[in-house]
Each structure stands twice: as C-alpha cells, then as structure tokens.
C-alpha cells in the first residue's frame, strides 16, 4: 500500500486504491452477498417475497445433495476439471522448459506467435473448431480411418470431447506462468546439478520443479477455475449424457427461472473452487501473495 503512495503520490495513489475497492465491492462483494443471500431463501412468486414464508433455509443446498443426478454431475465436473488441469500441466511443463531454457531467442519468438495466433479468435469459435474436428464425419475420424486405426467413426462428443476442448482452450494459462517461472532459473543451477552427477530426471525433480512451483501452482489454479466454470466447451462438445455443472446452473437461472436454487448451485461451485485453490496452494506450499506476483 505504501509502495503505491510512494510511486504515484497521495492523490493519484488514493484514486487507485478507491477504484480497486469500488471494483471489489461492486463486482465481487455485493454480487457474492446477493448470491449467498438468495441461495438461502426459498423460491417464491413475487407477491409472497418478504412474507412469512420468506425465511432462511438450507433447502436449496439439500436439493442438490439429495438429487439423484446433480451431485454426481457436480463431482464429475470437479474430477474432469482436475483432469484438464493435469493434462495441461503434463503437456505444458516440457514445452515451457524448452521455451525458457533450451530454445534460442528466434525459436522462442516463432513458437510464441504460433501458439498465440489461435487465441486471437473468440473462445466460442475455437470451441466450434473442435466441434468440427471431432464431428462424426469430421477430419479426425476421417484421418484415423484413412490410417487404418479405426474401422468405423467414433462419437467423440461427450466427456472426452469436453476435456480435449477445454485443455486446448486453457493450455496457455498453464504454459505462461510455468514458462515465466522457469525462465528465471539460473542456467548454472542446472549445470551444477549435472556436473555433480545428476540424471536429467533428477535435475527436473530437485532443481527445476521446486523453482517453478509458484508458476505451476498459478497455472493449476487458473486452469482449474476456468475449467470448472466453463460453459462453452461443454455446451458445444458435450453429449446429452455429459452435462457439465455450469449447464445445470444456467438451466436453473434462465430456463426454469428458479434463481434461488441456481444461486445455491453457483455458491456450491464457488465454494468448491475456493477450497481446491486453497488446497492446491497448501499442497505446493505457496502463499497467495507470491502466487499472484
């Protein structure tokens, strides 16, 4: 805080602080309180709101827990988001290492441009691209069949398609934090470990990964949160049997019109995300400030 005042002076620094507080209050705090408030109240027609029946209850949460299907979908969303996180991590770590420590400046620039180009497009369009690729008569099936790996086309839409689409959509959010972290690793550290007789595997496990853990934690938090809250990829690439929890939240709000139950579902998702984030940070022994930095 004092840093802000020192850098920008009291009037301008004060403006920034006030703006941030307004943003926090208007975009995070008030909507959050509103959500929690309505999640705890029953869904009533307008004339009855504020009347005798409008009391605080856990009914909406109980509905989620007791529902034959929704609890399961909730858990599947958590599990699939974790899967997306793991998949992007496994994919990104070697690439990030190569970019940050091995590649020449020229190679790095070309790679970054190639990776960024698809992200100039809208997320929906990118999802649609996967929709086309994974179609029954799409290029993936055609290619695999031409190679003789498949006898008949496979229906990719469903959980597999959703995970693939999301991994693609969020891969850079994993790549950049890890890449940044590894780029700050002194090359001599790797040389010293090798000189002392370390195998490549041990160098990564003992030297590179501990150094990159803040980046890894940040990437995992980003990807997990976005996957759990994603709507486009499941809507496009899912199948009737592979509903995502966000789709159910959407239905409560905009199709069924029960905002209270929708709010309860949303709060449940938010609470889960928050606990996973804190769990991840604890697992990596990273505190929130260093992760944000």
């Amino acid at each position: 805080m004092t840093e802000i005042f020192q850098r920008f002076g009291k009037p301008l620094g004060g403006c920034f602080v006030v703006l941030v507080l307004l943003w926090l209050a208007g975009m995070v705090l008030v909507p959050g309180i509103f959500m929690i408030n309505s999640s705890l109240r029953p869904h009533l027609p307008p004339p009855l709101r504020g009347g005798d029946q409008d009391v605080y209850l856990f009914d909406n949460f109980a509905y989620l827990i007791n529902h034959s299907n929704h609890g399961q979908i909730f858990l599947k969303t958590v599990w699939s988001s974790a899967l997306v996180t793991m998949a992007t991590l496994l994919l990104c770590y070697p690439v990030a290492y190569w970019l940050a420590q091995v590649a020449s400046k020229w190679q790095m620039r070309v790679m970054l441009v190639l990776m960024l180009v698809p992200y100039l497009m809208n997320e929906v369009l990118r999802g649609l691209a996967w929709y086309i690729i994974l179609a029954l008569a799409g290029p993936l099936n055609a290619g695999l069949m031409a190679l003789g790996l498949l006898d008949e086309p496979v229906r990719w839409y469903g959980d597999g398609g959703v995970v693939a689409g999301m991994a693609y959509a969020y891969v850079l959010f994993m790549l950049f934090p890890i890449c940044n972290a590894i780029a700050t690793l002194e090359k001599d550290q790797i040389s010293a470990a090798r000189d002392l007789g370390s195998s490549a595997w041990r160098i990564h496990w003992r030297i590179v990964l501990p150094h990159a853990k803040v980046g890894v934690a940040t990437g995992c938090v980003f990807v997990f949160m976005m996957a759990a809250g994603s709507y486009v990829a499941p809507a496009l690439l899912g199948a009737p049997g592979s509903r995502w929890f966000t789709q159910i939240v959407y239905e409560w709000f905009f199709e069924i019109g029960n905002w209270n139950r929708g709010a309860a579902y949303g709060v449940a998702l938010m609470a889960m995300c928050l606990s996973v984030v804190l769990g991840l940070l604890a697992l990596f022994r990273v505190n929130l400030t260093s992760a944000i930095k």
Binding site: Q189, A193, L196
Partner: peptide
C-alpha cells in the same frame, strides 16, 4: 555427469 571433474561456478550456483 559421468566425468571425474567438479566445477566451482562463478555464481557458486548453490541450490
């Protein structure tokens, strides 16, 4: 990692 040499780096490169 298979040579009978050990290096002391200018930066020391302690982990």
């Amino acid at each position: 990692n298979k040579r009978a040499t050990a290096m002391i780096f200018q930066s020391l490169a302690l982990f």
